[in-house]
C-alpha cells in the first residue's frame, strides 16, 4: 500500500514523550532547548516545534515565553460514569478533588439550562455553581440544576456517593468555544481547550436534574471502560 502522507510529527511526539520518561522528568522540570532537542532527535526546529505544539495542546508540556518548555502536572483522571456524581469517584477524590462555590455563570450555560427539559421555571430550580480543582489546579466549572420536588427523594442529588439504579443519565460531550470571561476563573492559556459535558438525570421518565460542566480538556482525562457481551 502506498504511503500517501508524511505523518512525521507523530513519531516526534513519541520521541519527546520517551525523553520525558527516560529522563524521569517531574512536573515543573525543563525540557532541552529547541536547538538542542532538534539536534538530539535529528529533525529541523520547525518539525520539532510542530510536535511540541501538539503536546502543549494535550496538556503534557507548557511553554513559558522567553524561557522554554516545562513538564505539566499529570492530567486528572475522571470516571465518565460518575461525572455528575464526583463524590462517587474515589480515584478523583484521592487525587485531591475540591470545589468552591462561585456565582459567575456564562451566558451560554444559563441559556442551555433555561431552555432545558426541566418542567420548573429556571428561577425556581435549585442551583449550585462550583469551581472544581484537583490539587489546587482548576479543572472545571460545573453548574447543577435540580427540580425542587425531587429533593424529597434526593436531597443532594449531585453530592450523592451512592447512585440509585433507578436513575438514568444521558450524557453528551462537546467542544466548547469559550469567551474571554472564562480565562481568569480557570487560569486558561491560549493552548487550552474546553469541553462541555452535559448530564441529564432522569427518574421515572422525568428529568429531575441537569449538570452542565465546562471541563478543561488539557487537564482532565475522562475515562470509561466497556465490557462487551460474551
Amino acid at each position: 500500500m502506498p504511503k500517501m502522507y508524511n505523518l512525521l510529527s507523530l513519531d516526534i511526539e513519541e520521541q519527546v514523550k520517551q525523553y520525558i520518561d527516560e529522563h524521569n522528568l517531574q512536573p515543573g522540570d525543563k525540557l532541552p532547548s529547541e536547538r538542542d532537542f532538534s539536534t538530539m532527535l535529528n529533525v529541523t526546529r520547525v518539525t520539532l516545534r510542530h510536535a511540541l505544539e501538539v503536546l502543549i495542546s494535550e496538556g503534557i508540556i507548557e511553554r513559558h515565553p522567553g524561557s522554554g518548555y516545562y513538564l505539566c502536572p499529570p492530567k486528572a483522571d475522571r470516571e465518565l460514569l460518575y461525572y455528575c456524581f464526583p463524590y462517587k469517584d474515589c480515584a478523583l477524590i484521592n487525587e485531591g478533588y475540591a470545589t468552591e462555590k462561585i456565582s459567575f455563570i456564562p451566558e451560554q450555560i444559563r441559556n442551555i439550562a433555561a431552555n432545558s427539559a426541566l418542567p420548573t421555571a429556571y428561577d425556581d430550580l435549585i442551583s449550585n455553581y462550583v469551581l472544581e480543582t484537583v490539587a489546587d489546579r482548576p479543572i472545571g466549572l460545573t453548574y447543577m440544576f435540580q427540580q425542587p420536588e425531587s429533593t424529597l427523594l434526593f436531597p443532594y442529588l449531585f453530592e450523592m456517593n451512592d447512585i440509585p439504579d433507578e436513575l438514568t443519565i444521558t450524557q453528551t460531550i462537546r467542544v466548547f468555544s469559550y469567551e474571554e470571561d472564562l480565562v481568569e476563573p480557570l487560569h486558561l492559556t491560549s493552548s487550552d481547550s474546553l469541553l462541555l459535558i452535559s448530564n441529564f438525570v432522569h427518574y421515572r421518565s422525568q428529568t429531575i436534574g441537569i449538570s452542565l460542566s465546562l471541563c478543561v480538556g488539557s487537564r482532565v482525562n475522562l475515562v470509561t471502560s466497556i465490557t462487551l457481551p460474551e
Partner: peptide
C-alpha cells in the same frame, strides 16, 4: 474497551 476522552488541538 477502555476509552479516554479529552480535548486537544
Amino acid at each position: 474497551i477502555r476509552h479516554v476522552f479529552s480535548s486537544s488541538k
